[in-house]
Simulated assay, not measured.
Amino acid sequence: MTEFLHAFMSGDIEHARLLASDEFSFQAPLQRGHGSRQSYFSGAAAKTRYVKAIRILQQWEDGTNVSTLYELVVRTPNGIAAMPVSEWHTVENGKVTSSFMVFDTGAVAAELMRDALASGH
């Protein structure tokens, strides 16, 4: 699971894609309902270019479920900030099949990212 998170957040989208199942789906604070594998990876390069670091604080595994609490550091032309993020993944046969992400959408880092993506920096 750590490999998937580090690959995705570092911008190695192709490696992360290899670690996700064809049926991969996700939920995230700015996503309505369940998103598809295609929608998860289609905007990844634009988003991850602002990620400067990921620090895993704690990770728990229980069968096919993996819960990770991490700090994400975001740097955009308007500043730098960190925010805590929690993700719950399901992993089956060595592939990530789902992701449920939680973070404070009002956090400074989230606002920096949202502004940068909206302005096309």
Rank of each mutant, 00 (worst) to 15 (best):
T2V: 10
T2W: 08
E3W: 12
L5Y: 12
L5Q: 11
H6P: 04
H6A: 09
A7L: 04
A7P: 02
F8W: 06
F8G: 00
F8S: 00
F8R: 01
D12S: 12
I13Y: 03
E14N: 14
E14A: 13
H15V: 09
R17A: 15
L18C: 11
L18Y: 06
L18T: 12
L18P: 06
L19A: 05
A20M: 06
A20I: 00
S21G: 15
E23S: 14
E23D: 15
F24I: 01
Q27R: 14
P29W: 03
P29D: 05
P29V: 08
L30P: 07
Q31W: 08
G33I: 01
R37N: 04
R37P: 04
R37M: 11
S39F: 01
S39P: 07
Y40I: 04
Y40K: 02
Y40A: 07
F41Q: 01
F41S: 03
F41N: 04
F41I: 05
A46R: 12
T48P: 03
V51P: 03
K52Y: 00
I54S: 10
I56L: 09
L57E: 13
Q58K: 13
Q58L: 12
Q59Y: 00
T64L: 10
V66C: 08
V66R: 03
S67Q: 13
S67M: 15
T68D: 03
T68H: 01
L69P: 01
L69Q: 13
Y70A: 12
E71G: 03
L72M: 14
L72E: 03
V73Y: 02
V73F: 03
V74E: 02
V74L: 05
R75K: 08
P77K: 02
P77N: 06
I80R: 07
A81C: 07
M83V: 02
M83N: 06
M83W: 12
M83A: 09
V85Q: 02
V85E: 02
V85I: 12
S86V: 15
E87Q: 15
H89L: 15
T90I: 14
V91F: 03
V91A: 05
V91Q: 10
E92D: 10
N93H: 14
G94F: 02
G94H: 07
K95Y: 02
S98N: 14
S99H: 06
S99I: 10
S99Q: 11
F100P: 04
V102M: 13
V102L: 15
D104R: 11
D104T: 10
D104W: 03
T105P: 07
T105S: 14
G106M: 14
G106Q: 15
A107Q: 13
A107V: 03
A107N: 14
A109H: 11
A109K: 05
A109D: 04
A110E: 02
E111Y: 06
L112V: 11
L112N: 01
L112Q: 02
M113L: 15
M113R: 01
R114C: 07
D115H: 09
A116R: 00
A116L: 08
A118N: 04
S119Q: 11
G120E: 02
H121V: 07
H121N: 11
H121K: 09
H121F: 09
